[in-house]
Write a protein that binds this DNA or RNA. Structure first.
Lengths: 224, 224
DNA sequence: GCTCCAAATAATATCGATTTTTATTGACTC
DNA sequence: GAGTCAATAAAAATCGATATTATTTGGAGC
């Protein structure tokens, strides 16, 4: 028998967890620029916490390839380059292709419903008004597409690569003109193919979506 | 001629680094069994260091998926299961296939020489006399095969998956009888194909090697 | 016997201070 | 000037102690 715990205690995350979440966001959005030295004392100030949680959060962020650690020389935000961007894009294409096919082939009503829901929420969020919110909903939708694949390690890789890619989206944010594109239609066609259980078509639509975005970003990132 | 890095013995590694290396080995070899709770105090005793380096090393090990961290409930060695083993094997096959093809297609004399060298060193090490040494040489050989692929993130994934797989090799160590196999011949045919620049044949030989090993281990791991 | 709750215990997480290492500066030599 | 080296400054790494949180234990009531 399952007994629900009272959970009276405040569910505040630990200082490490809070630091991890905030630093992660700061790196993804570019508030902490790629390649920047991450000094413990400075971050201590920003986060209002001791050195231990900061160090531990930074160590955890190396898992995500968002922070590089050099023994006895501290931490720095992972560097960005056009080459890295291309590698990420290429790997995403092969790995998400794999994951999406598995996911669609194992379709269940529950999964389909959660997918429709994620899509709806993303649709409802206006990118211009609320970039942060849109980016979150966008990630949820894309990960939900893959989520039905029974392969935790693969999904972890995909999630990591997604985040690494997002950083480049923020990097290129100013110069990219999203108005020229119809991403909504692209998302719709991925969703439709997935919902009718067509793994081949959904994978094709997904990769097309990524490659289009890739070309778009490529211009903006040429400076790197 | 390729010269191995002389390991810069002038400066000893930090306590964190030392803890990381040792804990990593202990988890890979099963000295710290899969799923086991990793108590800071206990590890402090083993490593003869403070709590901070231990915590930091454990945080770094989550990068490698060798340690799981649950906020405010500490760390534990990553759990092992037959399902996980199969997933690792499957992912390795697709990702190393990709990496090896890239690597072979970009072949250079330097790379070929380093490959021959890595193979020779592995050959020279007797598995029965020196398991630890053989495992190291074996990893160097396999990673060297892929090393010429110009894709750092892919190589990182392959290295991670390799280590996760090694753990299962140690788990199954007692019950598997390697005498029934001729892994030397398999390694040789991968090497030969790679050296003559035949990406297709080398990839095929590599995957065959992994699948054979997989079938072997599968029996031994049935208990999981 | 079973559940619920509170005290006691054990472990994690965090802090502040100290030690160790790296980076920088500036005088000195060639 | 360029290079070397010691002294200084800055930062990272580590320690020991404390605060916080989870887990266990031991009744009291039903």
């Amino acid at each position: 028998m399952i007994v629900q715990k009272p959970t009276t205690s405040t569910n505040e995350p630990s200082a490490t967890q809070a630091a991890y979440t905030l630093l992660r966001k700061m790196i993804l959005t570019g508030e902490l620029p790629a390649g920047e030295k991450l000094k413990i004392e400075k971050l201590r100030g920003i986060l209002g916490t001791g050195a231990s949680p900061v160090r531990e959060a930074l160590s955890l962020l190396t898992s995500d390839m968002l922070v590089e650690r050099i023994d006895q020389k501290g931490f720095r935000a992972a560097s960005a380059s056009l080459k890295n961007f291309r590698e990420i894009l290429s790997l995403r294409c092969t790995m998400e292709d794999m994951a999406l096919r598995q996911s669609v082939e194992r379709a269940t009503p529950d999964w389909e419903e959660s997918l429709v829901l994620a899509h709806h929420r993303m649709q409802k969020t206006d990118r211009k008004e609320n970039v942060q919110g849109f980016e979150e909903a966008h990630k949820v939708f894309h990960m939900q597409l893959l989520n039905n694949a029974d392969s935790p390690v693969l999904l972890r890789f995909c999630s990591q690569l997604y985040d690494l890619n997002i950083r480049y989206r923020y990097l290129a944010a100013e110069s990219v003109d999203y108005r020229k594109r119809n991403t909504a239609a692209e998302h719709r066609s991925i969703l439709d193919a997935a919902l009718r259980g067509d793994a081949e078509a959904s994978a094709e639509a997904l990769l097309d979506h990524y490659k289009r975005t890739g070309s778009y970003l490529e211009e903006a990132l040429a400076a790197l």
